[in-house]
């Protein structure tokens, strides 16, 4: 299956992937409205690696594991792996117990900070639009949608 891969040598840590991730998952699909009126947690984590020479970064989102621990830990059946291999979360079923957060070894499932909708936030590969918003808007091509086999 295709997943988003982040290339450290190109990632600038600029944070645009977060901006576009939030917007893509907003109701309004408008950046400014998303930030002003909706409290969305991006499904991407940007990590910084401190090395003596220079900071490097990488963006991280759900790895859509072949054998996903989050699916196993989910108490409500909200988390599942679909036929295409995408690990999805059914918002309506999710009760926000965070069992998935407890077991995700990548730390790629996030608690949604919006307290009203106590659910989690994770990458769905923007399956509705085709190309993930983070990949589409990465200014330095650090995020690529690639086939697993191609990467290996």
């Amino acid at each position: 299956m295709k997943k988003v891969y982040a290339f450290e040598k190109n990632c600038l840590g600029c944070g645009l992937c977060e901006v576009y991730c939030k917007t893509a998952h907003s109701k309004s699909k408008d950046i400014i409205k998303t930030y002003r009126k909706e409290n969305i947690t991006s499904a991407i984590v940007i990590e910084e690696i401190l090395s003596p020479k220079a900071k490097t970064y990488f963006a991280l989102q759900c790895r859509h594991c072949a054998d996903p621990k989050c699916v196993k830990a989910c108490i409500s059946g909200a988390m599942y792996k679909d036929q295409n291999g995408i690990v999805k979360n059914i918002k309506e079923k999710c009760v926000g117990c965070l069992s998935c957060v407890l077991v995700c070894p990548f730390g790629a499932v996030k608690r949604n900070k919006d307290k009203e909708r106590k659910i989690i936030s994770k990458c769905d590969l923007c399956i509705e639009t085709g190309t993930p918003a983070c990949v589409e808007n990465c200014p330095n091509n650090a995020l690529k949608l690639m086939d697993e086999e191609e990467v290996k």
Partner: peptide
């Protein structure tokens, strides 16, 4: 200011 969303991309870049 009407458009700035405090995403801090400019700060980082």
């Amino acid at each position: 200011e009407k458009k700035c969303i405090q995403c801090k991309v400019c700060v980082k870049q």
